[in-house]
């Protein structure tokens, strides 16, 4: 088991390609040997990834590739068979407060009687705990500020079921902003979202990067990968590649990841191997 790595170099080869060799302690999020299975079929197998700090990182792969599972296993939401995870150089678990999660929108009950403001306040739970006062000036202005960043400040008292899909997504992003974390994990943040919201969310994520935070997003739209993301991780149960976008986002890697699932014409627009 790797304990608090300080100056450790890790270089490995998968099908002849080098994966990014960042010192583990310097990665925003570092995963080694992660394996997860639901029942008997493995969903993730022996995944090693280092997500670099202060970058926008995408996780891509076909359906069922284990992309959401990777995020959930990192956070401890699904149990892992093996593997260890480091957050900013420390074993994850103690400082989980430094990582914020924006889950997929699908599983919420939209009739739940909470307002937009209530949802964002949930992001402050780690700061206020069971009994802390949420009504202090600091916390109220924090909630306002997070909603303002996503353009939803006028909707504070609206019940969440009265919002459009894109607006709901913005609110959940605001909730994670309230946590003031260093690393943000987003599960398909642009799925089913209108163009205006996509633009608004990208702006927020880029502002996070400017503030020296790390953004890691499971992304579903191949066409926008090199436009939005600095670093890309291709996954299909096993790691295919993980590197800066212009290194890893190649025809060859996409073929490994998606198998026959993508036609050549779809892959044509993407970078050629250098």
């Amino acid at each position: 088991m790797v304990i608090a790595a300080q100056q450790k170099f890790e270089v490995a080869t998968i099908s002849g390609q080098n994966i990014a060799h960042i010192k583990r302690g310097q990665a925003a999020l570092s995963v080694r040997g992660l394996s997860v299975s639901y029942g008997e079929a493995p969903v993730l197998f022996s995944v090693d990834v280092d997500f670099p700090k202060e970058q926008m990182c995408a996780i891509i792969g076909p359906n069922g590739a284990g992309k959401s599972t990777l995020i959930k296993a990192v956070l401890g939401i699904v149990p892992k068979l093996s593997g260890d995870v480091m957050l900013h150089g420390q074993r994850i678990g103690k400082n989980n407060k430094n990582i914020a999660y924006v889950p997929q929108r699908a599983s919420i009950d939209w009739d739940f009687p909470v307002t937009v403001k209530d949802v964002v306040e949930m992001g402050l739970y780690q700061k206020v705990g069971l009994l802390g006062r949420l009504s202090t000036k600091t916390h109220r202005s924090k909630v306002y500020e997070c909603l303002d960043h996503v353009g939803m400040a006028d909707f504070m008292d609206r019940q969440i079921g009265q919002l459009s899909g894109g607006q709901q997504q913005r609110v959940f992003l605001a909730r994670s902003l309230a946590q003031d974390a260093d690393v943000y994990l987003l599960d398909e943040p642009f799925a089913g979202v209108d163009a205006a919201t996509e633009k608004a969310i990208v702006q927020v994520l880029q502002r996070l990067k400017q503030k020296k935070k790390t953004v890691i997003a499971v992304h579903h739209d191949l066409a926008s990968v090199d436009q939005y993301f600095d670093h890309v991780t291709l996954l299909n149960t096993r790691l295919i590649a993980s590197d800066q976008t212009d290194e890893a986002f190649t025809n060859e890697n996409l073929h490994h990841a998606y198998g026959g699932a993508l036609s050549l014409t779809q892959l044509d627009g993407y970078k050629q191997p250098s």
Binding site: L75, N96, K97, P103, Q126
Partner: peptide, 15 residues
């Protein structure tokens, strides 16, 4: 309340 509303998110907060 947190758990009733969004179980997965509550989990991510280490509840």
């Amino acid at each position: 309340t947190l758990i009733s509303f969004d179980r997965v998110y509550a989990h991510s907060l280490r509840l």
